[in-house]
Amino acid sequence: MIEIRDLHKYFGTLHVLKGINLDVQKGEVLSVIGASGSGKSTLLYCINGLEPIQDGKVVVDETDVHAKGTDINKLRQKLGMVFQQWNSFPHLTALENVALAPRIVKGKSKADARDIAAQQLSHVGLGEKLDAYPGALSGGQQQRLAIARALAMEPEYMLFDEATSALDPELVGEVLETMRMLAEEGMTMICVTHEMGFARDVSDRVAFFHQGVMEEIGPPEQIFGNAQSEHTRKFLANVR
């Protein structure tokens, strides 16, 4: 379970997150929507400790992410993350990309790491591309590679930071399909997304962020059908 309590985040003097309170249960799929600059991506970075926070706390399975004594590298193994820019390691083949972290972080043998990698790559539909370098893969394939790379660490939570925003329109579908599959498998997911169809169909809850505040959270039927907040309605009217 992820518990976020009164989380405040500043970039310099810019107040990006203004007291966020949010619980994410095991097995839940939460979509986070909102305009650019509303703080939704920053929220993800605060959850896995890639960004320090200024106030409040984030607790993942009873471990305070930002506490001094926390082994953040160990905690991050639980929190897979997929980025807008897929960030595949260009000098490694698809298989090596996925096998690297299990080998050096988890200390798996080379053979075991390769097995895990091959398995995760076929899971996301890249079983034919094991020896391809990222440069030879399409954006959609690279993003699925990034998903496989995160999954190879056997995370308990997956954080998606606008995983489809940088893709050509015709490649968005295959990545969403993969995310949908993960959701069906019961993965706990927090998806920052602009894909309203995905948010509506796949999520258990949808959170709407507006200027650093979590304006509204509820089941997709509420957010998309009967939003309580004026800002939510306005935002949805504009994206549709």
Partner: peptide, 15 residues
């Protein structure tokens, strides 16, 4: 971004 991706996998600074 690339380095954050590496760190998000649990790699240490030195790894």
């Amino acid at each position: 971004p690339m380095r954050r991706a590496a760190r998000s996998l649990g790699m240490t600074y030195w790894q």
